[in-house]
Amino acid sequence: MSFLDLANKRYTTKQYQSGKKISEDQIRQLKEILRLSPSSINSQPWKFVFVGEEQKKAELARVSYFNEQRILDASHVVVFSVIDRVEDFEKQIEEHLPEGAVNYYNNMVKPLGEAEIKSWLRHQVYLSLGFFLSACADMDIDSTPMEGIQSEEYDRILNLEGYKTLFAVAIGYRNPADSNQPALTAKSRLPLEAVVATV
Rank of each mutant, 00 (worst) to 15 (best):
L121Q: 12
L133V: 04
G148A: 13
S119Q: 14
A135L: 03
A101P: 05
P111Q: 06
F131P: 01
K164L: 11
K164Q: 15
S143M: 07
Q124C: 06
S119D: 12
K118M: 09
E161L: 03
D142M: 04
R122Q: 15
R122K: 13
S128C: 11
E114K: 09
I141Y: 05
L129T: 02
R156D: 02
E114Q: 15
S151R: 13
L121R: 10
A135W: 00
G162I: 03
N106E: 14
V125G: 05
A135K: 00
L158G: 05
P145V: 04
V102W: 01
A115G: 05
T144Y: 00
S134E: 14
P145W: 12
T144C: 13
E116D: 09
S119N: 14
P145C: 03
L133E: 07
D142C: 06
L127P: 00
A115Q: 06
M139I: 05
A137M: 04
H96K: 10
V109K: 02
P145A: 02
F131L: 08
K118E: 07
Y104G: 05
K164E: 11
G148R: 02
D138L: 11
N107P: 06
M146H: 09
G130M: 04
G100Q: 15
P111W: 01
S134N: 10
A137K: 06
L121W: 11
N159Y: 02
H96M: 04
L97N: 10
M139Q: 15
F131N: 13
D155M: 00
Y154E: 02
Q124A: 09
E99A: 12
Y154T: 08
T165Y: 01
T165F: 03
E147H: 10
E152A: 05
Y126T: 07
L112K: 12
E152S: 13
D142A: 10
L112F: 08
Y163S: 03
V125W: 08
Y163Q: 00
E147P: 01
L97S: 13
L112D: 07
V109F: 01
G100N: 11
I117W: 03
L160P: 03
M139L: 15
N107A: 10
Y126C: 08
Q150Y: 12
M108C: 09
Y126E: 02
V125D: 08
F132L: 06
D138R: 07
T144I: 00
C136N: 13
Y126I: 03
S119V: 01
Q124H: 10
V125S: 13
D142F: 02
E114C: 03
H123F: 12
A101Q: 14
E116V: 01
H96G: 15
I149E: 04
E147N: 08
P98I: 12
S151L: 06
I117K: 07
K110R: 11
L158R: 02
